[in-house]
């Protein structure tokens, strides 16, 4: 019941879906259509896992007054306040309903700026790395560096001013040698995906069962 049944579900579900692909009959199509309607419903409940885990982790920190515990409140409060503001108190700052409420505000004016600024910090680190880490130490490193410089300058208008061959060469590198490398890597990844799919379907790969008891 604990391991065999889930493995059987995976096997039967996987094999049926592969067969379904090759039999475009009305019945098999109907089953498939219903399946695609069911899946998002099941998936929606997986959210409870994330919310539960975060609540448990940060609730524990707050209760035990762990170091830096007030930050845990910054996680817990929005998790529960966002739905409250969205469903029960959808009012804006002015108290009316004409402007978007706190729920919208928190997403647009707190979440979006923080998250995009965090990503943008990488620009500073790549500049620092350009100065201190990108060295032409060997032939291979030199090839990488030269390619990067050509592609980089080919992407900006000033590269076009330096010579019209710059962007053309950059595009040629992307379309041919780059494609050769990415295709070889892509084929490796593609075969890897297929092998993993088969391993999961046939129960060779069982890590997904996780630690939910034997």
């Amino acid at each position: 019941m604990k391991r065999t049944v889930p493995l059987m579900i995976v096997l039967v579900g996987g094999v049926l879906m592969i067969i379904q692909y090759f039999i475009p009959h009305r019945i098999s199509q109907d089953i498939f259509d219903n399946y695609t309607i069911w899946v998002p419903i099941i998936g929606a409940f997986a959210l409870a896992l994330g919310v539960g885990s975060l609540t448990r982790l940060h609730g524990h920190k707050v209760r035990n007054k762990a170091p830096n515990w007030p930050y845990s409140l910054a996680v817990l409060l929005p998790i529960y306040l966002m739905p409250i503001f969205a469903f029960f108190v959808p009012v804006s700052f002015g108290g009316g309903m004409d402007e978007p409420g706190f729920y919208h505000f928190a997403f647009m004016h707190i979440q979006v700026p923080i998250q995009s600024t965090m990503f943008s910090i990488l620009a500073f680190y790549i500049a620092s790395a350009a100065f201190r880490a990108f060295r032409a130490k060997s032939v291979l490193a030199t090839i990488l560096l030269l390619t990067a410089v050509i592609v980089m300058m080919g992407q900006v208008p000033i590269g076009e001013l330096l010579g019209s061959w710059f962007p053309k060469l950059g595009l040629w590198i992307i379309d041919f040698p780059n494609n050769a490398a990415k295709r070889a890597i892509g084929l490796g990844v593609g075969f890897g995906i297929l092998a993993t799919q088969l391993k999961i379907i046939f129960g060779v790969e069982r890590n997904w069962l996780g630690g939910a008891g034997e």
Binding site: A127, A130, F131, R132, R135, M152
Partner: peptide, 17 residues
């Protein structure tokens, strides 16, 4: 801005090397 930044990064790479 992208122009200027790319030139600066290029400068950093050359100077660093």
């Amino acid at each position: 801005v992208q122009n200027a930044a790319h030139l600066l990064i290029l400068f950093f790479i050359v100077l660093g090397n």
